[in-house]
Amino acid sequence: MRLVRAVPALLGTAILLYGMLGLLGASGPSPLGRWLLVVVVGWLAVDAVLTPVVIAAGRLLRRLLPDRPGDRPGRRGAVRVLVGAAAAVSGVLTLVALPLVDGGGRDASVPSALPLDYGRGLVLLLAAGWLGVGVAVAVLLRRR
């Protein structure tokens, strides 16, 4: 089991070091300053915005989706786990897709730059995911 954890940790560390060396060796107008700005803003966004939203959503889900009848106390029901996982994946997918939906970087003179309707794609992916969760929840509830 140690090897299973050590290999990804070593790989991630090597990738991080490679990126840092590239950043420090880059020429041009202060990429280190821009990088630090992105890291600090990202860190603040996660700690000040994203974390409270995730905690509030989790508490709301806990109230809306109580434990299944007959479950041992403290054991989470399968419905709550499915809905919680779908909500987490939806949130991450939305965060990743927002810059594409916004169209930042789109240039009319380069038709191949961001050529798709990313907003529609995001909606379709979210709808397909939640449809799958709905079917799984319906099957679970019907089995009871």
Rank of each mutant, 00 (worst) to 15 (best):
R63C: 07
G121V: 04
L11P: 03
A85L: 11
G134H: 06
R143K: 10
V4D: 10
R144K: 04
S112K: 07
L131F: 11
A86Y: 02
P111H: 09
V89Y: 01
V39C: 05
A88V: 09
T13S: 15
V7W: 05
L65G: 13
A14G: 12
L16N: 03
A127N: 10
G58P: 09
V139I: 05
L125A: 15
V4Q: 05
A113H: 04
D102M: 10
V123K: 10
I15A: 15
A113K: 08
P8R: 01
V38Y: 11
L64S: 11
L37D: 12
L82R: 09
G84Q: 00
L21A: 14
L93R: 05
P73F: 04
R144A: 03
I15F: 11
P111F: 06
A97S: 14
G70W: 14
R72H: 07
V39L: 15
G25T: 10
A6Y: 00
V38T: 02
G134A: 14
A128L: 15
G19V: 05
R63K: 12
L3Y: 07
L140R: 12
G84P: 01
G70I: 15
R34S: 09
A14Y: 05
A108Q: 07
A26G: 14
G77L: 14
G129L: 15
L36A: 15
Y118I: 11
V53E: 06
S30Q: 04
S109C: 02
V83T: 03
V110A: 14
D67Y: 00
R75V: 13
G104P: 01
V81M: 05
V53L: 10
W43D: 07
V123G: 02
G70K: 15
V89Q: 02
V39I: 14
R120I: 07
A14I: 07
L10D: 01
R34Q: 06
V7K: 03
G103H: 08
D107V: 09
G103R: 04
W43Y: 12
R142D: 08
Y118C: 08
G91S: 13
G19L: 09
L23G: 06
L60C: 14
V38W: 05
R75Q: 14
L82H: 06
D47P: 00
L140N: 04
R63M: 12
V53G: 01
V110I: 14
G70V: 12
A45P: 00
A6G: 00
L122K: 07
A48P: 00
G12I: 05
L126Y: 01
V7H: 00
L131V: 05
G74K: 15
P115I: 09
G129I: 02
A127D: 13
V89N: 01
V79H: 08
L61M: 11
P52V: 06
